[in-house]
Nucleic acid binder design. Structure first.
Lengths: 250, 250
DNA sequence: CGGTCAATTGATCAGTGTCAAGGCAGGTGG
DNA sequence: CCACCTGCCTTGACACTGATCAATTGACCG
């Protein structure tokens, strides 16, 4: 559970006892293949999971079969923490790539929440950052063009992975297909591919196989109208990691 | 604060001491005209507000001036409860119609959360229902057509108001302009008007002035692919109030 | 009685979806 | 080691949803 501690400390502050209590949480490890359901819509799980490895997603489907990926989760994320207090899943949680997850019983988390107010705040806060990410999805889907969404996706997934220590140097892994990305962005695979081609031809990004390279971060962020505050990383991180540090001046 | 107690008891259970503690919360009443900002993006409020009267919304804007309403709040809702643990607003909270709000200091809520675990759970749960509503927004904006969004809007706003005791008999008030609804649905006002015309011509709904009438609930819900579980009202309410009770059999 | 804002309708245009075909890469079996 | 297969990516042609621009009507209000 060191990963959980690290995750929470990225956005909240804990003391030594909090850390110890988190590290002592009981858990079970389970591995999933690609595209396996973890919890299905309507279930009432009694465990929360932590992504240790792989990408996980929550998705919904409409009658005509249209799929919408609601949120993508990368290692360190807690995809179903909310079901501590919202028992019934309203959508399905599934792996995208082969994944490893740690399952922590709700009972243990309730105990922790009762005993350690700071941990309660950190966990609550984590669920609220999730909410904030949904708000950003709404902005994307409601008002951004396909090209804007594509650029925003590149910024977001790179930054999230960099913060999690999984990426560096404006390069990262996007271990999912273009069709899945399109399901996330609310467009068709064909159109995603074309939007990508535009950004590529403008020299902003490159996506080869499963690796994404950001070639022109400043201009990419402009196209995306990317503002990282929705990740609530704290003022320091946000500006340092991405916008200021290694970017050519605007 | 009786309204807060009632709101929380719609989705969570409380005991008598919980209720008393909620009713004793300190608060200040403030009135707003139409379209006044309550908290602006970037602010760090020290009060949470409860909508007593009027409609309130949270919205974002992109560079080209495109507005997206993220969520609409009706009397009884807690639009900024999340800022207890997510200090910085990432969007603006504003009234739509003239509104009356009660402001409760964060300090009082922290005290309540520390002393009354059941109230903590109820409040946390309320923020999670917000999240669930955002997920439904994502499904709407990502995969529903303009007509589907329009139908979904009618179902959602009627049901929420009925549950809050503000509507009945398949008729309710929608006290906002078509332009504002369009900003919520991620389409243009002209196109919303046309979608509305389609639903009207099919005899599903009527929108005259500020009153919405649902003429064919069953068929409207089909068009909307409306599933109320995202409101997490508890099994009883959801099915009773809207789908079963007074609807002609499918 | 005019003025302003919202609702409505028409005409045209742009962005995105759909259908279809071809190419490329990685995996599997002979 | 090669041949095939299967997904995925890419590109083209065309259709359609929703956006834009513009004008008219209607309601409320000073």
């Amino acid at each position: 559970m060191g990963m959980l501690q690290a995750k929470l400390e990225r956005t909240s502050s804990l003391d030594e006892e909090d850390r110890a209590a988190i590290r002592e949480l009981p858990y079970t490890i389970r591995r999933f293949g690609a595209r396996e359901d973890i919890f299905r819509s309507g279930e009432k799980p009694t465990y929360c999971c932590l992504v240790l490895d792989g990408w996980v997603h929550r998705y919904g489907t409409l009658g005509d079969g249209a799929r919408q990926i609601l949120l993508l989760y990368i290692p360190g994320d807690l995809p179903d923490l909310q079901h501590l207090f919202l028992p019934q899943l309203d959508h399905t949680l599934a792996s995208i790539t082969a994944s490893t997850l740690a399952f922590v019983p709700h009972t243990a988390l309730f105990g922790l929440i009762g005993r350690r107010p700071r941990v309660m705040a950190a966990l609550w806060r984590d669920t609220l950052i999730d909410t904030s990410m949904y708000r950003e999805r709404v902005m994307c889907l409601g008002r951004r063009s396909a090209i804007g969404r594509t650029a925003h996706f590149a910024c977001e997934m790179y930054l999230r992975q960099e913060v999690a220590g999984l990426a560096d140097d404006l390069r990262c892994t996007i271990p999912i297909t273009q069709g899945q990305i399109a399901d996330f962005l609310g467009i068709t695979p064909v159109h995603f591919n074309r939007s990508l081609a535009v950004l590529r031809s403008r020299g902003l990004i490159e996506l080869n196989g499963r690796t994404l390279s950001i070639l022109e971060p400043r201009r990419l962020m402009d196209v995306a109208e990317f503002d990282a505050t929705f990740l609530h990383l704290g003022d320091d991180l946000t500006s340092l990691l991405f916008s200021e540090c290694r970017l050519p001046a605007a």
